[in-house]
């Protein structure tokens, strides 16, 4: 029994904010659709200038409604879509029932959230825009990305010693 539990834990990352609840595993060309959605997403990020350090400054200085409008309307559309998916029991393309992982409350959401906020105001980017900034030609952001990966690694290394 213990081995089975261990195997399950090893297969899907615990406390992951993007739990992959698809049963079938996808490889190779099946992943192209995510590349296309990502491209669409990166294009919007840059065209709406949400990847701009200036937009993030406007937001945190409460001097523009723009970012609040973007995030607020994105949440609204997400909320309505999820309600519709649930109400009509819409299935995923491969026929699986759509599952959304439950997020458990932990102290990390407070402490880690605050730490991320500090970094967000400095870099002017959350992880998504970091990739879009690099694509937009700000190649020095590669250094920020490597540092963000290092930060993730350090968290992983000490995660069991941090309050959670």
């Amino acid at each position: 029994m213990k081995t089975i539990e261990k195997n399950i834990a090893a297969q899907s990352p615990i406390e992951c904010e993007a739990p992959n609840l698809q049963v079938q595993e996808e490889k190779g060309l099946k992943l192209v659709k995510y590349l296309i959605v990502g491209m669409f997403f990166g294009l919007i990020f840059v065209k709406a200038e949400v990847v701009s350090w200036f937009r993030i400054q406007e937001m945190f200085r409460l001097q523009s409604f723009f970012m609040y409008g973007v995030i607020g309307s994105a949440i609204l559309v997400g909320l309505i879509s999820i309600q519709l998916i649930k109400k009509f029991n819409v299935k995923a393309m491969n026929g699986e029932t759509i599952k959304i992982g439950k997020k458990e409350f932990r102290k990390g959401q407070i402490i880690g959230g605050f730490i991320f906020g500090l970094g967000w105001a400095l870099t002017g980017a959350c992880p998504g825009p970091l990739f879009a900034q690099i694509g937009s030609g700000f190649t020095v952001i590669l250094v920020t990305l490597v540092s963000a990966i290092a930060g993730t690694w350090v968290y992983g290394k000490f995660s069991d010693k941090l309050p959670n």
Binding site: E17, G112, F116, T144, S147
Partner: peptide, 22 residues
């Protein structure tokens, strides 16, 4: 770059997500 990126990576993982996930 270095401190800012580190805070983003460490903080998002500790929080279990970023602007998109949470």
């Amino acid at each position: 770059f270095v401190v800012g990126g580190f805070l983003v990576g460490f903080g998002t993982r500790y929080a279990g997500g970023c602007t998109s996930g949470h």
